[in-house]
Design a protein around this nucleic acid. Structure first.
Length: 473
RNA sequence: GCCGCGUUCGUCUAGCGGUUUAGGACGCCGCCCUCUCAAGGCGGAGAUCACGGGUUCAAAUCCCGUACGCGGUACCA
């Protein structure tokens, strides 16, 4: 195929949701696969709701996901001359016309239609106005909207993903292109820009499928050939309802804040509706780009499964070098941990965390002594016998050389054997004393990283607590 | 209401008329490893392919209905 030109066209009325992110990703993937061009267009024609800070947030999220654009960002708010010109042309050519009904009149018509049980569709009455009459009223300063004269014929949309969608003649009314205050509206600006920017493929959510016949009519009126359409199924929450904050994170920046990796999110999102076949799941952006095809996108909606994302994220986490992870962990408050310890601690905990937040949380014990102890652990192990064992262990470790996990384990095993207890009977209370929880990386490796001083302090403090002695400072 | 689209294990999906006792992944269960928890390895349960009619020698795969879900129905995008 000749190099395609695709675009992602978010409107800055909210932050970038995962649905939008997936749309952006597919566009990006398609462009990269075919050596095409990926453009970014900000659809900020809704002057009341568009916000500059949300635009920045969207751009930031795109960059974070690694979806670099080749052209843009273009802002529709800066392209009004183009839309005005197109509007004038459509009006002059007769494919669009002025309609002078006031909002009140339209409301009355809508109510009347509802009263008879019919859906309201503007009946196109202003088409009957003569050109002279229309010009005269406009010149007199009367308010009007510009409407497209929809051809009275059925529309067929051949969609790469959804198949063939047929819309009977008369299903769509003469929709508004330009508001009475002069602001152009979405359908109009999107099509004018798609033509101006030479867009060859429109990849977007199915929520736009019912709009597509309008766009087809608009492309025709504009004298342009229509692009190939690919409408993606919706991304739903776990309960099958529209994805929202209620389902946990829905915005890209929320996933970032929760410690998800962009590569993992990209990979996960790509799989929501697309599959390269051959049971392949783990892929880099590059691999996905080389495998991507519109034909392999499924039409049905999919639910967002946080569990699988978390799993995938954990997989990615394990492949990142500890030193690199240390840097990535910086925004998650690990700065109070000694840099010399951090890499070693990360190596120990990495496979046990699925997100950076979980990792940072687990790493906290290398920065300061545990303040709280797992309740079930205290109940089970917080006994005087444990205190005795822990004091004995502390004593053994105070002079142990070298302070390596192998030597530590040897010493602990010897102590357990002498006391006639299993290693676990010694290790579990020690784990609780050192980490505050009952699940951790192998105990002796943790001790090695923690170091002698910290280990002894925590062991003794915990033993004191168990035997009822006042906490030492 | 009307219009449009969708419907394979709980979830994401493979499958594009016969090679299917419907494959993989997440999750779940069990075993191994083991000082605990993960990771990893191995194994298991889990889908009458929404339902009902057709077409065909043969259908998850093609066609038509029904149900359910989602979307649209703005001087929002």
């Amino acid at each position: 195929m000749t190099a395609p030109r695709v675009r992602f066209a978010p409107s800055p009325t909210g932050s970038l949701h995962v649905g939008g992110a997936r749309t952006a990703l597919y566009n990006w993937l398609f462009a990269r696969r075919h050596g095409g061009t990926f453009l970014l267009r900000i659809e900020d024609t809704d002057v009341e709701r568009s916000r500059r800070d949300l635009t920045d947030q969207i751009l930031h999220a795109m960059r974070w996901l690694g979806l670099d654009w080749d052209e843009g960002p273009f802002f529709q708010s800066e392209r009004s001359a183009l839309y005005r010109e197109a509007a004038d042309r459509l009006l002059a050519e007769g494919s669009a016309y002025r309609a002078f009904e006031t909002p009140e009149e339209l409301d009355a018509m809508k109510r009347a239609a509802e009263a008879t049980g019919n859906a309201f569709r503007y009946d196109g009455r202003a088409r009957a106005l003569s050109r002279v009459e229309s010009d005269r009223r406009a010149a007199a300063g009367e308010k009007f909207v510009l409407r497209l004269a929809m051809p009275d014929e059925p529309f067929v949309v051949d969609d790469v993903v959804q198949g063939r969608a047929e819309f009977p003649a008369g299903a769509l009314d003469d929709f508004v292109l330009v508001r009475s205050d002069g602001h152009p509206l979405y359908h109009f600006t999107a099509c004018v820009d798609d033509v101006a920017m030479g867009i060859t493929h429109v990849i977007r959510g199915v929520d736009h499928l019912p709009n597509t016949p309008k766009h087809v009519a608009l492309f025709r009126a504009l004298g342009a050939s229509q692009p190939v359409f690919a409408h993606l199924g919706m991304i739903l929450g776990a309960d099958g309802k529209k994805l929202s904050k209620r389902h946990g994170a829905a915005g890209v920046e929320e996933f970032q804040a929760q410690g998800y990796l962009p590569d993992a999110l990209d990979n996960f999102l790509a799989l929501l509706g697309w599959s390269p076949g051959e049971d392949k799941e783990r892929m880099t952006l590059g691999e996905m780009a080389s495998l991507f095809s519109l034909e392999r996108i499924g039409p049905s909606p999919s639910r967002f499964d946080h569990e699988k994302l978390a799993w995938l994220n954990g997989q990615y986490l394990q492949e990142i070098p500890a030193a690199t992870l240390a840097g990535m962990l910086e925004p998650f408050q690990v700065s109070h941990i000694d840099a010399g310890l951090l890499d070693r601690a990360i190596a120990l905990h990495r496979s046990r965390a699925r997100t950076l937040v979980e990792l940072a949380h687990a790493l906290a014990i290398y920065g300061e002594d545990p303040k709280e102890f797992e309740a079930s652990g205290l109940k089970k192990l917080g006994k005087p016998e444990s205190a005795v064992l822990l004091r004995a262990l502390a004593e053994r470790l105070s002079l142990l050389e070298p302070f390596s996990h192998a030597a530590l384990e040897e010493a602990a095993r010897a102590l357990a054997a002498e006391r006639g207890v299993k290693l676990g009977d010694l290790a579990q209370p020690a784990r609780l004393a050192l980490t505050g929880v009952l699940a951790s990386p192998p105990l002796f490796e943790v001790i090695e990283v923690l170091g002698r001083e910290t280990t002894l302090r925590r062991l003794v403090a915990f033993a004191d607590r168990m035997s009822g002695a006042p906490v030492a400072h």
